[in-house]
Simulated assay, not measured.
Amino acid sequence: MNFNFLSPVSDLVLAHNELLSAQALGRKLKIHSAQQGIPDLDDVNIAIFGVLENRNDVNYIGEEFHLNEIRKSFYSLFPGSWNTTIADLGDINRGESVEDTYFALKEAISILIKKNIIPIILGGSQDLTHANYRAYDALIPMVNIVNVDAQFNLGDSTKPIKNNSFVGKIILEKPYNLFNYANIGYQTYFNSQEEIDLMDSLYFESYRLGQVSKDITIVEPVLRDANIVSIDLGCVKGSEVSLNQKSSPNGLDGKEICAIARYAGISNKVTSFGIYEYKPSKDDEMTAMLISQVLWYFIEGVNYRIKDDDFSDDRNYQKFICMVDDQELVFYKSNKTGRWWIEIPFLAEVNNKLKSHTLLPCMHQDYLDACNNMVPDRWYKAFQKNSV
């Protein structure tokens, strides 16, 4: 297994780790060190690594950064009652070109996913999500991306990729493997009306900050259906992070971003998770600790994953059928978890590439709406995407 592009965790961080309690998380990790090299990954379930690349940030001014403070904070936390083995593989340094960094990131993600290891990526500018997406080209036929961000990042896809336009590149570049793109926490005044209209016309999903803050549970189904979850730290309100990280007085608070991370963790489909747009500063403790807690909650979620979407055995679920206008809607409720899905039979009939999306995660409220003759929004958008 070739991980030559990964540099080890700093000796300063390792020295700090040695001073921690024997029960601390850092003492239980498999860590890539200069002395020991890359750890054996045979029993590893989750692998964390940094990507020290931010040259495609629209505000890039030539600064370099490291992730030492995040590691110190994360290592100092105590694990839950977990049964997963976690590795810290160090960092992917900047390549000679940004494309070299992208290539190394794609390789790392592809290798890990093929070994059934969930990669957690710490960036760097969020355009790295494009490389994360391209790592799936040879892994699965269609990909769902959830972007937790104040902006859609559609941008001008005719121009070189930047951290504010990478989604436009994902949508328009061949091969066309994107099935659904969803945004959680967008703020209308940060997005042009043209971008908002484009999201609607493509039948992508978006959840405004106010909606999410009012009821965080509305984002669970879309995270349950995601393969890739990408978080831009700019979605967090300025009062929750360090001075250099602040971008807006409004945004998700610490509890909300951690809840979203946990929903991503308990999703059986999420196979890569990234946190981007980290901007270290001298007063970095707050941001580093928030990122550490987001990581903690994602890993906590992974430890509580339950295989509840096997509908081959009717003892595992309850089936509900209701009519909305002339359309028969079929819902499934897991007996294990109480989570809901809605059937989309036409996807399997029309396009073999979409077979994995014939069951769409939804909420109990969607079933109640259907009983009141209202078509669930997620079902409608999936139907329209298939009809285009």
Rank of each mutant, 00 (worst) to 15 (best):
L202N: 07
P280K: 09
G251S: 04
I218N: 07
S281P: 03
I216V: 14
D215N: 15
Y207M: 11
F204G: 09
L223H: 10
F204W: 13
A288R: 02
V270T: 11
D253R: 01
G238N: 05
S272N: 13
V241H: 05
I266Q: 03
G210M: 10
G251H: 01
V241F: 01
V241R: 05
K279Y: 12
Q245S: 10
D253F: 03
A288W: 05
V219H: 12
A264F: 00
A261N: 02
V229L: 02
S281M: 01
S272P: 04
A261E: 00
T217P: 04
Y207S: 05
I228D: 00
N227K: 04
L243F: 12
M199G: 11
N244D: 14
A226S: 11
S201V: 09
G234P: 01
L243A: 11
V222Y: 04
I266V: 14
G254K: 08
R262F: 11
D232A: 11
D225M: 02
S281K: 03
K214C: 09
A259K: 14
V219A: 07
L198F: 12
G254C: 11
K237M: 05
A226R: 02
G251K: 05
K246N: 04
G251D: 01
N227R: 02
A226P: 00
K255R: 11
R262N: 14
I257G: 03
K246R: 12
Y207D: 12
E220A: 12
N227S: 08
V270E: 03
S267N: 06
V229H: 03
M286Y: 13
L209F: 06
S213T: 09
E256K: 08
I218L: 11
L198Q: 15
Y263G: 06
L198W: 09
L252C: 08
N244R: 12
Q211N: 14
G238H: 03
T271E: 15
D225E: 12
E285L: 15
L223N: 00
E240I: 01
V229S: 00
S267F: 07
L198K: 14
S248L: 00
D200K: 13
Y263T: 09
S239G: 06
E277Y: 06
K237V: 02
Y207N: 11
K282T: 14
N244K: 12
G210N: 12
E205R: 15
D253Q: 08
N250F: 08
I260L: 04
N250H: 14
D232V: 02
I218C: 06
S242P: 09
V270S: 03
S272M: 03
S248T: 06
S281G: 13
L209C: 09
Y276K: 07
T271W: 07
S213P: 10
G274E: 13
D253Y: 04
E277S: 14
L209S: 00
Y276W: 14
N244E: 15
V270I: 04
S267W: 02
S247D: 07
G210T: 13
P249T: 08
I231M: 05
L209I: 10
L202F: 09
G251C: 03
S247Q: 10
K255S: 13
D284P: 08
G254W: 01
V270Y: 01
D284K: 10
L202D: 06
C258A: 11
L252V: 05
I228E: 00
Q245I: 03
E277H: 10
V236F: 03
G265F: 10
K214H: 14
I275H: 08
Y278D: 04
C235P: 06
D284A: 04
A288I: 05
P280W: 11
V236T: 07
